[in-house]
């Protein structure tokens, strides 16, 4: 074709506009077809990165038995869920925390009713350090002095190096190593949860590194002797050490799946949720209902457990509700 064009420019030139038009039409058609399909059977799930893994696994299994449904997952962070639900760009919002009053108010102002909340399970954040760190337990005031710039929990001085951390022996080689605190970015539900529970509603110090996922935090802490971070229990592996939680006049509380009953007293335990844009007393759409019914099956609940969450039925709270289906 190209050769012909060089020799007989006229002939080629004649075809160009029609060809362009043809390409354009093809492009339009291609862009149009998926949107027509999308309107019918696509379930869009937006929100928490913490829940992203388990929901992806659920989706895979769900699509095996429901080939007619396409599921899209956008796991940016919990804060993306309320906005997406209010704007109608998601069917299900996944959140690693409950919606705040402000988020509820904005949703109500936009939709005129409350969203439906479904508790999925419990998750816990743990403070992690490098494997060879001498520390084995930490209390809230130390966490506050490391991460916070307001220090509402302790009122103490900021901690700059490991020598200032209570529990690190003065002879330890870590004493003159700077503490490197790590956390999540502000879109993450864990970020706000950590600020609220571990920093007593305080602010993060500006030098805290903000990373885009728990996996990145675990990687950084594992490779850096001076680092300290927090991660969802499901993300903690044997490259890092999870610290027990110290409370005044109580034994250190080690958090593990074996002691899930004790999570009720653990300050960094939380409930992960699904939100639907429909009012609580109205049945959601058929697609949402099929997905919600699917995740209550024993196998799906096992998947939830495999991803490091304690299913709601296993904890002391009431089980997963069907969300009015």
């Amino acid at each position: 074709m190209a050769d012909r064009c060089q020799h007989k420019a006229t002939e080629c030139w004649e075809q160009t506009p029609w060809k362009l038009l043809g390409y354009w039409l093809c492009l339009c058609l291609w862009a149009w077809i998926p949107t027509v399909e999308a309107k019918q059977n696509t379930l869009i799930i937006t929100g928490s990165d913490t829940l992203g893994g388990v929901v992806t696994a659920w989706t895979r299994a769900f699509q095996a038995s429901n080939p007619d449904v396409a599921v899209e997952i956008q796991a940016a962070g919990s804060a993306a869920a309320p906005t997406a639900l209010a704007e109608g760009t998601a069917n299900i919002g996944m959140m690693s925390r409950a919606m705040s009053d402000g988020e509820l108010a904005r949703f109500v102002a936009r939709r005129g009713h409350l969203p439906t909340a479904i508790a999925l399970g419990r998750d816990a954040l743990v403070i992690i350090v490098a494997k060879d760190n001498p520390l084995s337990a930490i209390d809230r005031s130390t966490v506050d002095r490391i991460w916070s710039s307001t220090r509402y929990c302790s009122g103490g001085a900021a901690i700059d190096n490991w020598g200032q951390v209570p529990g690190v022996a003065s002879a330890d080689r870590l004493t003159r190593v700077p503490v490197e605190p790590v956390g999540r970015t502000s879109i993450s539900g864990s970020y706000g949860f950590f600020k609220e529970r571990a920093l007593c509603d305080g602010d993060l110090a500006p030098h805290v590194a903000q990373l885009q996922g728990f996996a990145a935090i675990v990687d950084l802490v594992a490779s850096n002797p001076g680092a300290i971070g927090y991660a969802g229990l499901g993300f903690v592996d044997d490259r890092v050490k999870a610290l027990a939680w110290l409370q005044p006049s109580q034994p250190p509380m080690a958090v593990s799946y074996a002691t899930a009953d004790a999570w009720e007293r653990y300050p960094l335990a939380r409930t992960v949720m699904f939100y639907l844009a429909t009012p609580p007393d109205v049945a959601p759409g058929p697609l949402e209902c099929r997905f919600l019914a699917f995740i209550q099956e024993p196998q799906a609940q096992q998947t939830l457990r495999d991803h490091g969450f304690i299913p709601m039925a296993n904890t002391n709270n009431s089980g997963v509700t069907t969300g009015g289906c």
Partner: peptide, 16 residues
Amino acid sequence: GYLESTWTWQPKAAKE
């Protein structure tokens, strides 16, 4: 809550 005046970037998150 701060001890001095600062240039800070910290949008509100999660809680109002």
